[in-house]
């Protein structure tokens, strides 16, 4: 019950943050002189891109912790982060592509930053495919952990892509080593927007983690029933649940 009310409070905070950031993006922050109104895409595109990078780092942290400790919770965290990474990585690519169309006159170009971000998205997809098709249990979790750790190598490459190669993508305007800059009102709007989207991401990550934990609980209960001679039927009428709770 306490858990439900804490989550409800978090949702209310998220809704308030969303309202504030939307007001700032569409009504408060001034329009950029050269790019016009499309520059406001920055306040969506940058936060979702930051989260896509953060998600693969979280996958790697969860994977390392799982390989070291063997505790399933770390594996669940890595799995949940990979799935949310697909969403936010996909949003980064799509919003970037829509922004590129009026500015560069193309939907897509094989620019270093764009290409490495696309590779990150495929890493997330590959990780989830491995989770789906690898043998159930610890072996599959260990294989996926290795992919998650190797995949995180892409994060610093994306971050520094505009410095390492001559790219059409603008330089970073925020974060360590950023060479670009923003006016104070724009910087504040970007900060509020980033806090909002990070909070929403954290909420979804926790929800996805709970799903993974519940799946493990279903598998444990099914194993218990199977051990006592009753084939546990899934509530949706599907095949008996397999015991993979310990992965």
């Amino acid at each position: 019950m306490r858990d439900v009310s804490a989550r409800s409070a978090w949702l209310v905070i998220n809704a308030a943050l969303m309202a504030v950031s939307l007001w700032m993006i569409f009504l408060w922050v001034p329009t950029e002189a050269n790019l016009g109104v499309i520059q406001r895409a920055l306040y969506f595109h940058v936060p979702v891109s930051i989260i896509a990078l953060g998600a693969i780092i979280l996958v790697a942290i969860g994977s390392v912790a799982f390989l070291v400790s063997g505790r399933p919770r770390w594996d669940w965290l890595a799995h949940a982060s990979a799935e949310t990474g697909v969403l936010f990585g996909g949003l980064a690519l799509v919003t970037g592509s829509i922004w590129a169309r009026p500015i560069w006159n193309v939907w897509w170009t094989w620019d270093a930053k764009l290409t490495t971000t696309l590779i990150l998205w495929f890493i997330f997809i590959g990780y989830l495919m491995l989770r789906a098709y690898a043998p159930p249990g610890r072996q599959g979790a260990r294989l996926s952990a290795v992919v998650g750790i190797i995949g995180a190598i892409d994060a610093p490459i994306i971050y520094y892509a505009a410095d390492l190669w001559r790219t059409a993508h603008p330089s970073r305007v925020t974060g360590p080593g950023a060479s670009g800059s923003l006016e104070s009102e724009m910087a504040l709007t970007l900060l509020v927007s980033t806090i909002t989207i990070v909070s929403l991401y954290a909420y979804v990550l926790v929800e996805r983690f709970r799903v993974r934990r519940s799946e493990a609980e279903v598998a444990e209960l099914s194993k218990e029933l199977q051990a006592s001679g009753i084939p546990a039927r899934r509530s949706d009428g599907g095949a008996p649940a397999t015991a993979t709770g310990g992965d």
């Binding site: 050269n34 016009g36 109104v37 499309i38 969506f44 949003l91 919003t95 009026p102």
Partner: peptide
């Protein structure tokens, strides 16, 4: 440049981000 040029693209970004989420 008319500041409202490309408003459709911005709208698409806004809708896709929130709809996806």
């Amino acid at each position: 440049m008319n500041p409202n040029t490309n408003l459709g693209y911005l709208f698409a970004i806004y809708i896709i981000t929130w709809a996806g989420f």
